[in-house]
Amino acid sequence: MNAFRLAGDITHLISILVLLLKIYATKSCSGISLKTQELYAVVFLARYLDLFTDFISVYNSVMKVVFILSSVAIVWCMRRHRAVKRSYDKELDTFRHYYLVGACFVFALLVHEKFTFQEVFWAFSIYLEAVAIIPQLVLLQRSGNVDNLTGQYVFFLGAYRALYILNWIYRYFTEAKFSRWIACISGLVQTALYADFFYYYFLSWKNNAKLNLPA
């Protein structure tokens, strides 16, 4: 495992910790899209079906379990916890995420590495992860200003994607037969979705001002 990949996994982990911290410390999930969180829970559950069939490393298995449990816990909190539930911006979080799930599944049935149960679900999870951030970005755009922890959450998620791209570039040049075009193309699409957010995040950081997304 190269440094980019490790840094990518760590920023991914940090993003989840930032989100858990926000929910736990403020007992509020305002600014967070439940739809995006639900999509991530589906992404991890669909992708890590191999948890019991293919052992790669302890690191790999532990991270998989952490991602599944944390994403399910976040969804559970936002739906069931009394105080957290109250702070949810339901009227702003109206993106129809079921369409994304349907479209990604159909796409996975058409484009996959192998037509097996696990491989189709793996491809599905890759496509769904690429677009899962959309409801969150739409919510931020609608609410206009973004609180610090929410901004940092999205920033770390974006950083994770960017580091994965560096990881693939590194692997492409260092590994003899490195080809994973499904993951790479989806990853590029996913990272591109963050470009706009990153632009405004950078501006607010440079001007030392609160993060504001123009409508």
Partner: peptide
């Protein structure tokens, strides 16, 4: 091993 290594990323 080849199969497993294919999805070695998270």
């Amino acid at each position: 091993a080849e199969e497993a290594a294919k999805h070695d990323e998270l």
